[in-house]
Design a protein around this nucleic acid. Structure first.
Length: 263
DNA sequence: CAGATCACCTGCTTGC
DNA sequence: TGCAAGCAGGTGATCT
């Protein structure tokens, strides 16, 4: 489900509620979401105070008074404040001011506790909204692969996913199969700006709700209404009216305009 | 290093 | 109506 704008929206809706609170009790009910010793995880979290809630890439990083709680929402993970426990409530955090439910039908998400910075986060690439234009273009030039898989690679940039890569490539007129190293400096600069624009705009609209994404207050996002290509197969390009095409690239549905986007 | 394939799950939609 | 196949916002392992 959630890419950078959705995770950012969740963090923003969560932070005021969680910061300064204490975890009274926590319990977990999925061996996929919480691999390993779930009883140990409960003991590690019980009694901990919450100092901050931040985003890094697509990860939610919750700094505790001892250790760090790291949550990845996978495809269908949701963190819900004071919500009823549905069939897929695999994590329950009882706080001194209410309850936080981790709900995740597909169980692709992960909840982990760490004393130090988890390796998964340490190896993330730079934040797309923080990297400089020169660092971005020089990194792009060094890679001998297609641009879409590269942008999806979290070690290259942290936070982009299938929706926003398709949207950014459309906005910069680049074909998803284009070779990264062959993209001209001018075109790379357009891609850089497109990534920033689309992420910033999506955050302003509180993310994209394709099927079931909601923030911690249960609110849907609105950016799906502004998608130019994602989920618009067969519909006319908003620029040139050519039908949007959908292909499979690295096993991911890929949407683009065959006229506006060239290799 | 690049990329193809599979695997991890559930649930919804589509087509027969 | 029923059933199977295909699809979904993500990541990681393995093999070529």
């Amino acid at each position: 489900m959630p890419e950078l704008p959705e995770v950012e929206t969740v963090v923003r809706s969560l932070a005021p509620y969680l910061t300064g609170r204490r975890i009274v009790h926590a319990e977990f009910h999925s061996r996929f979401v919480t691999p390993g010793d779930r009883g140990l995880l409960t003991r590690q979290l019980t009694g901990r105070g919450i100092q901050s809630v931040e985003r890094r890439g697509k990860f939610i990083v919750i700094q505790l008074d001892r250790g760090t709680l790291v949550i990845h929402l996978g495809m269908t993970g949701k963190l819900l404040i004071d919500a009823p426990r549905g069939t897929h409530a695999y994590g329950i955090f009882e706080l001194d001011n209410g309850v936080l439910i981790y709900d995740d039908p597909r169980q692709f998400g992960r909840i982990e506790f760490s004393d130090t910075l988890p390796a998964r986060i340490a190896r993330l690439g730079p934040e797309p909204l923080q990297i400089s234009l020169t660092d971005f273009t020089s990194a792009l030039r060094r890679r001998n692969c297609r641009v879409k898989p590269l942008l999806l690679n979290q070690r290259f940039l942290g936070g982009l996913g299938n929706i926003y890569v398709d949207e950014a490539l459309f906005r910069s007129g680049i074909h998803p199969r284009a070779l990264a190293a062959r993209i001209s400096p001018a075109r790379a600069a357009r891609l850089y700006e497109a990534i920033r624009d689309v992420l910033t705009l999506a955050i302003e609209h509180r993310g994209s709700s394709i099927s079931d994404y909601v923030d911690a207050a249960g609110e849907r996002g609105g950016f799906q209404l502004l998608h130019q290509v994602y989920g618009r197969e067969g519909e006319p390009c908003r620029v040139c009216r050519t039908p949007i095409r959908r292909i499979l690239l690295v096993q991911r549905g890929t949407h683009y305009c065959p006229k506006c986007q060239r290799v």
